[in-house]
Design a protein around this nucleic acid. Structure first.
Length: 597
RNA sequence: GGCCCCGUAGUUCAAUGGAUAGAAUAGGAGUUUCCUAAACUCUAGAUGCAGGUUCGAUUCCUGCCGGGGCUACCA
């Protein structure tokens, strides 16, 4: 039985015997004892005065006395006000350690038979990926990993916004202002090439608008009627009619973009099981809306446009189909959601990883689907995250303050290389090994930085200072792992083999060992918490704390100076479990961990 | 205007209604004969304001002040 379960059942039993009161295991909450007090687990007695008919202090005393007397799991207790602090006996810790050591699946839950879909990334094809996408991508990937460890079957998907006026703008600019260059001929990534033409279009368009305004036309008028814009709109119509030339160009340029995106995804170490393309789905949802309108769920205005009225739910009226019968964004989303439950009928949850500026959109979407009576509408979830700000404020493409994803990954890698070389850490590394290490460190720093913050909150990213490699960072954890790996290598050379009987040689644990064992024992709880909150930050903080505590142990204890061979073996095995837990935890954040650095 | 989110050390972030509000950085002082000093040990420093709910509030409620977002027949 797990340590905490065991404690809870003993407490429950104590209530029955001492106070003739029934207290279910679920009502018993244990929290880690604060550092400044003696003990490991704390039971708060304030709420149970009614059951014990005693003051909180007296309740604590009675319970503590009973617990120490009736079980050898608890070796001591103390009461401070309404807090009963319980000290776990070393043999119980050692027993806990043995069971974790022997369970190589520690940190992986058995399958729960449920399927979930996580949508993330979902870029437009007219712009390269930027810092904001990175938060999205790392978050979506990590959440997927966490849910999988928690026992779900996870489908990672993205929807690619591959059609629309924006891509036509890039295409038009490439046709009119380009020289027929390709990613190969220009020597740049395809997504950036296409993005450059989008920027080119916007530049020329603004130029044209300015010229026309100068000639006396009104700004508002011109913005809608500038010849360049009309041309782009014409192109979109041709695309919709599958005009061979336009369609061919669209395929070609999107192909470039996908090659570019894939290179970036690969560099980031993320993947997808299935891609949805908006060009396949943009017509879906229309029929359903028509149907629902006939059933009276939606209403039609005189001009023929179809709307949903959400004023009863505290929201507005929302357009679903234009007067000409064409779809808007949300109509497509209705269709794609239905399509997904069609593709995967067993889906339990559908999670959309999308920035919090779209909270209103998803609120409306989910409400509409619910009104349409879809049984799974309650299982839709918007995994909303805050923007990534720069010290200069918000990223704005117009002001050229957007931080490009490829650039930042490269910068981080270079910074990692610089630090590593300064510290003289790459002795014995080949060039390839060194480059690989820099990649792992740079990417690890970046991922950890973006994931350690509560996803819902807006956060600040300072590219100038780059990312610190000290303190609460990815490289700190990676470093800890590399240190432990060195110990394990040495232990292997010495031929040290831990077996459970070595535990007998451990007379007493030290403070660090107890703290670390407490945390190791808590690993699965943290995964569970991260999975139910859909928040990798919980886990990131946990791994950092674990690494920090181990570093204290490391600074204090000279493992190989230990004359007691059983104790030595225990400490090696202990280190081994910490390393394993760090690796597993970091994997759930999508972060690789080196053996040496 | 309406709706939503956020205000915590100089800075970046923590804290299922629980104890003396934690870390990390930056500042000050230390620790390398020994398993990797990207480490460790001291030290100094914070809940926007005003009420309420209760044994107890950073957390829940109300008002105010500050910051951001959404509120398109764009995607």
């Amino acid at each position: 039985m797990k340590l905490e379960e065991n404690l809870k059942s003993i407490i429950s039993q104590a209530f029955t015997e001492l106070f003739s009161a029934q207290l279910g295991m679920q009502e018993i909450k244990l929290q880690p004892t604060r550092k400044e007090f003696e003990g490991h687990y704390t039971f708060v007695t304030f709420p149970f005065g009614k059951l014990s008919k005693l003051s909180p202090e007296q309740t604590g005393e009675k319970l503590g006395e009973y617990l120490v007397g009736s079980s050898d799991v608890i070796s001591a207790y103390n009461v401070v006000k309404g807090f009963l602090n319980l000290t776990i006996a070393d043999p119980s810790w050692l027993q806990t350690f043995a069971s974790i050591y022997n369970n190589s699946d520690h940190g992986t839950f058995p399958s729960n038979g449920e399927e979930v879909m996580v949508e993330y990334s979902s870029p437009n094809t007219n712009k390269p990926l930027h810092l904001g996408h990175l938060r999205n991508i790392f978050l979506g990937y990590s959440v997927s990993e966490i849910l999988q460890a928690r026992g779900y079957k996870v489908h990672k998907v993205q929807i690619i916004n591959d059609r629309g006026i924006h891509i036509c703008k890039s295409m038009l600019a490439w046709q009119k202002f380009g020289n027929g260059e390709t990613p190969e001929s220009a020597g740049i990534k395809g997504d950036r090439l296409v993005g450059n033409y989008y920027v080119e279009f916007e530049k020329r368009y603004r130029q044209q608008v300015a010229e026309l305004v100068e000639q006396g036309q009104s700004q508002e008028e011109v913005e809608k009627n500038a010849p360049l814009l009309l041309e782009a709109q014409q192109m979109l119509k041709q695309w919709e009619q599958k005009d061979p030339e336009v369609y061919g160009l669209w395929k070609k340029m999107n192909g470039w973009v996908y090659d570019g995106f894939n290179a970036t995804y690969e560099a980031m170490g993320v993947d997808f099981h299935k891609l949805y393309y908006e060009s396949d789905t943009y017509l879906s949802g229309r029929d359903e809306v028509f149907k629902a309108e006939k059933e009276g769920l939606f209403f039609k205005k005189e001009d023929g446009s179809i709307w949903v009225d959400l004023t009863d739910d505290g929201l507005d009226q929302k357009l679903l189909l234009r007067s000409d019968g064409t779809s808007v964004y949300i109509t497509q989303d209705i269709g794609t959601a239905m399509g997904r439950y069609n593709d995967f009928p067993k889906l339990k949850k559908l999670i959309y990883t999308v920035g919090n500026e779209q909270e209103y959109h998803f609120k409306v979407l989910f409400l509409i689907l619910k009104k349409m009576g879809l049984p799974w509408a309650d299982e839709l979830y918007h995994l909303s995250y805050g923007m990534v700000d720069l010290p200069s404020g918000k990223m704005k493409s117009r002001e050229g303050t957007v931080v490009d994803a490829d650039d930042i990954i490269q910068e981080m890698t270079e910074t990692a290389g610089k630090h590593t070389e300064e510290l003289g850490k790459i002795e014995g590394f080949t060039d390839e090994q060194a480059q690989e290490l820099y990649r792992i460190l740079g990417l690890g720093a970046l991922k950890y930085f973006l994931l350690k913050v509560d996803p819902r909150k807006r956060m600040l990213f300072n590219p100038q200072e780059s990312i610190e490699f000290h303190g609460n960072t990815g490289p700190f954890i990676q470093y800890t792992h590399a240190r432990i790996s060195a110990i394990l290598r040495k232990a292997e050379e010495m031929g040290l083999q831990f077996s459970e009987s070595d535990i007998a040689a451990v007379a007493e644990l030290n403070e660090y060992e107890r703290n670390v064992l407490f945390m190791l024992n808590d690993f699965e709880n943290k995964i569970d918490e991260a999975a139910s909150d859909l928040s990798p930050s919980v886990l990131a903080q946990y791994i950092y704390d674990l690494g920090k505590e181990y570093n204290k142990f490391y600074a204090e204890i000279s493992i190989f100076n230990e004359p007691n061979e059983g104790l030595l073996k225990f400490r090696v095995a202990f280190s081994q479990v910490v390393a394993r837990t760090i690796r597993k935890g970091m994997k759930l954040l999508g972060i690789e961990v080196p053996e040496r650095m």
